[in-house]
């Protein structure tokens, strides 16, 4: 078999894999909200505030 068939098959398989990935991403609702994730990704810094976490645990201890 000529190598061109192998290459064609591979290229089409790769293309179809990406196509299926696209279909699944649409199905999972990724394209429903295109705005919020762009803001959400900026939040990480605020979430990891180790110093503040300590205060949280302290105050909880006091309460209990």
């Amino acid at each position: 078999m000529s190598v061109i068939y192998v290459l064609l098959t591979i290229s089409i398989i790769v293309a179809v894999v990406f196509f299926i990935a696209f279909i699944f991403s649409v199905k999972s609702g990724q394209y429903d909200d295109a705005y919020t994730p762009s803001i959400r990704m900026l939040f990480e810094d605020e979430l990891v505030k180790t110093k503040k976490d300590k205060i949280v645990s302290n105050s909880q201890e006091k309460q209990s």
Binding site: D32, D33, A34, Y35, T36, I39
Partner: peptide, 9 residues
């Protein structure tokens, strides 16, 4: 447990 905002809606 978790909450997720959809800003557009």
């Amino acid at each position: 447990i978790s909450s997720q905002v959809n800003f557009g809606k």
